[in-house]
Write a protein that binds this DNA or RNA. Structure first.
Lengths: 131, 131
DNA sequence: TCATGAACAGTAACCATTACCAATAAACAA
DNA sequence: TTGTTTATTGGTAATGGTTACTGTTCATGA
């Protein structure tokens, strides 16, 4: 990971990052907690939250702020797009990114537009089979 | 508003809808509460939440689920796009919608993609002048 | 005008997240 | 290797947005 002055590579931070990179499920903080606890049973939930924030800030992981009551995290920082299940909130990766059109002309009164992205919505298989 | 069987047009629901239509600020539930309380001082916050959900479900208003800790609401249901200030969460309208590219070919393993939209991020003037 | 039950006000509960603090352990110098 | 510094931890309490509950009220159709 990107080492910065005054940040220490703790075992907890290391394991969180590893677990997140080993998985494609875009887990919530709570789910990360469950994963990490299998290797570090005494880790606290606060530590997980703190490290997820730090890792997102340093750019080692992605924090998916898109809709839903819980935030989700992604160990894959290469550019790609996401679908979110409108029923359960689960997030998946879109295979071939749809090209974002030129947004340089976009204007919004009272705002400076910095970026834009495409957000997909849909239904995951688990939810689809329930209906 | 779209009248449905077994839903009653209460004064509270009416005022919430009116206030939301009179404003372009995409308020949070709490801000709607503040606005409505000037006309109905005894309304409860729970009533505001309940009606915002019902109005969104009936399509009379928009619930902006996009990132941020608080949900925001929009009385303008004609198709348009939004910018969100990454610092304060404020939401603004994009003037001329950027055309969403064809997403019919988008694939995501384990998901059925139903829709896509462009989300803008930026900084609002209030936050920009603070820096 | 009356009867019915959807919706209300007020309040408690919920849940994801953040803050706090004494104890621990990375990182670096000696 | 040992000691010092202080970022980070575990455990827990607090926060804040939202939802659920309950007895009361009032919109609606007969």
């Amino acid at each position: 990971m990107t080492q910065q002055q005054q940040t220490r590579m703790t075992k907890q931070r290391m394991v969180i990052l590893e677990e997140l990179r080993n998985v494609h499920s875009h887990p919530t903080a709570d789910e990360v907690y469950g994963m990490v606890r299998q290797r570090l049973p005494r880790i606290s939930l606060g530590t997980v939250y703190r490290n997820l924030d730090l890792l997102a800030e340093s750019g080692d992981i992605l924090k998916l702020e898109s809709a839903g009551s819980q935030k989700r995290f992604d160990g894959n920082v290469t550019p790609h797009q996401h679908v979110r299940c409108t029923q359960c909130g689960r997030v998946g990766d879109v295979m071939d990114p749809v090209l974002l059109p030129d947004i340089s002309g976009a204007r919004a009164p009272g705002f400076i537009i910095l970026s834009g992205r495409i957000e997909f919505e849909g239904v995951c298989e688990a939810c689809a089979s329930k209906n």
